[in-house]
């Protein structure tokens, strides 16, 4: 048997964390260590990050006594009388309880987020970054300060239009990104570059041929961001342009330009959208690509819906969307509310909490209750 | 804010495949769970059961007997209570984290794959 002892005042600095198969894999990999990270000390939630993945930490309280004990050698050995052994074998070792816990940490896979506090927007300014508070800090510093794995940071950075200009991490403004994309496509088309194998340096060289002599805002890093945001990496440092993503970008910009203040007939919008591409670019377009960015106030017309105007409160958002359009196809409606589905319900289950569903022929439409 | 978790100790354990097969881990730790509150004095008393270890007051509170063949366990608490329980393999192993507030560091010191758990009402010691 074993003698059990306990400290009279337990050490509160021990905690337990569930080691899922993913965490065990991260522990045994050659990649850098696990880290606890957080946006800020006061309000936000702690995440656990490996090199490639991020998990939200969740505290699971329980009502039992859990004592953590370790083998030790008591300083004053006492012999035990047989009568105090209650009929079980003599103790051969001793354990000392040093901590008690009333909870375990669970982990739930989540998306890493980049901390963009203090990251300036770059719109092609000549003296960038000027007196930016981020001066002197590197991209690695931005990633280190983000509740995210490094791998997710790298992918997400470019998705956001992240760039490093004059040594300063920044986000390209939508205008800057649009212009850079347009110039890059035009130059690549002019030089017949292969859109499936665009190399940043080669692409940068052809862009420089086409811009005016003097200071061009389309530095190598900007071109690199364009390729990374609108492409997928090949094995050999080249990028394959994602045509659908490029078409979508042009489409959203076209909605903002031509269909913001009032609705526009769909056919007219499609023509205008097509006209915004570089000549002979050959990108296919389909209004379904822009779901989540427009509504159809009347049949056959489209109007831009800015994500900035969408209420944060779920009921208010549903109300606003049904005011814009009384009846929606389920697929067109879902992109407008999926960010509110924080519990991860099936999307139509989530929608049905706040709206009504009707079948019209083969289609499912959503309308207000 | 961020803090790296030092994992060299458990990494070596996992890579050596030296896993816990007994109630105590290869590092000598054990997890004891009781469905109830374990009441232990907060201050020392003039009694044999109280002593000290490395300058810290401790008290002997029980006697544990484990049968690894049947995975059954008996825990005697004080002089009056007897609990019957079992050795259970954890569905998900638990990492033991030590937070050092002075240095601001965190270390994963061990991994528990088993615990000894007592869920039944205590019986009197006859």
């Amino acid at each position: 048997s074993t003698n059990l002892y306990s400290r009279l005042s337990c050490d509160p600095s021990y905690k337990l964390v569930q080691l899922t198969p993913e965490l065990l894999e991260a522990l045994t990999s050659d990649e850098p260590q696990l880290q606890f990270k957080c946006f800020d000390e006061k309000r936000s939630d702690v995440v656990l990050c490996s090199a490639r993945r991020t998990w939200l930490l969740r505290q699971k309280n329980h009502s039992n006594t859990v004592m953590l004990m370790r083998e030790f050698l008591p300083e004053d050995e006492q012999t035990q009388e047989d009568s105090s052994l209650f009929g079980i074998p003599r103790p051969i070792n001793d354990l000392l309880g040093y901590s008690r816990t009333t909870y375990e940490y669970e982990t739930r896979a989540t998306e890493g987020r980049i901390n963009l506090d203090l990251v300036p927007i770059y719109n092609g300014e000549v003296n960038f970054p000027g007196e930016s508070k981020l001066k002197g800090r590197t991209l690695k510093d931005v990633f280190d300060n983000s509740p995210s794995s490094e791998t997710e940071c790298k992918v997400r950075w470019y998705q956001l239009g992240g760039c490093v200009v004059n040594g300063c991490p920044c986000i390209l403004s939508p205008d800057m990104l649009s212009n850079a994309l347009h110039v890059t496509l035009m130059s690549a088309l002019a030089e017949s570059l292969d859109f499936d194998r665009l190399h940043p340096c080669e692409t940068y060289e052809v862009v420089q041929k086409d811009v005016e002599k003097g200071r061009s805002p389309y530095v190598l890093e900007v071109v690199r961001t364009v390729l990374a945001k609108f492409g997928t990496p090949n094995d050999d440092e080249t990028w394959k342009l994602n045509r659908r993503q490029v078409a979508q970008w042009y489409g959203v910009r076209a909605l903002q330009k031509f269909a913001s203040r009032h609705s526009v007939p769909l056919e007219e919008f499609l023509i205008k959208w097509k006209s915004t591409f570089p000549p002979f670019a050959g990108f296919d377009i389909d209004i379904k690509m822009l779901r989540g960015w427009f509504c159809e106030p009347t049949r056959g017309t489209v109007q831009y819906v800015s994500k900035d105007t969408l209420p944060v409160d779920v009921k208010d958002r549903f109300k606003m969307l049904f005011k814009l359009q009384s009846q929606w196809d389920l697929e067109a409606f879902a992109p407008f509310i999926e960010d509110l589905n924080t519990k991860g319900l099936k999307i139509d289950t989530f929608i049905m909490k706040y709206a009504r569903k009707r079948r019209i022929g083969k289609k499912i439409v959503v309308c207000s209750r | 804010p961020s803090v790296a978790i030092s994992t060299s100790q458990v990494r070596a354990l996992l890579l050596s495949e030296n896993r816990q097969t007994n109630v105590t881990t290869p590092m000598g730790n054990m997890m004891l769970e009781i469905q109830g509150d374990l009441e232990i004095p907060e201050t020392s008393h003039a009694d044999d059961r109280f002593s000290s270890h490395e300058g810290v007051d401790i008290v002997k509170f029980g006697l544990l007997h484990v049968n690894m063949e049947t995975k059954s366990a008996t825990l005697f608490i004080g002089k009056k209570q007897r609990l019957l329980g079992s050795v259970v393999k954890l569905d998900t192993p638990l990492g033991l984290l030590k937070f050092n507030h002075k240095s601001g560091t965190v270390e994963m010191q061990d991994i528990f794959s088993y615990k000894v758990i007592f869920k039944n009402r205590p019986l009197p010691i006859m």
Binding site: P12, F36, C38, D40, E41, K42, R43, S44, D45, V46, L56, L57, R58, Q59, K60, N61, H62, S63, N64, Y105, E106 | P1, I34, Q35, G36, D37, L38, E39, I40, P41, H45, D47, R49, V59, F61, G62, I77, G78, K80, Q81, L83, F99, H101, F118, K119, R121, P122
Partner: peptide, 28 residues
């Protein structure tokens, strides 16, 4: 002897409550 070493039994077990963890919680 004015002390007790005792298990106060609880009839049930509950572990349904879960919450996110703040930096302060982590170090508390």
């Amino acid at each position: 002897k004015n002390f007790r070493i005792w298990v106060r039994y609880k009839e049930g077990f509950s572990d349904a409550v879960r919450k996110n963890v703040s930096w302060h919680d982590l170090w508390s």
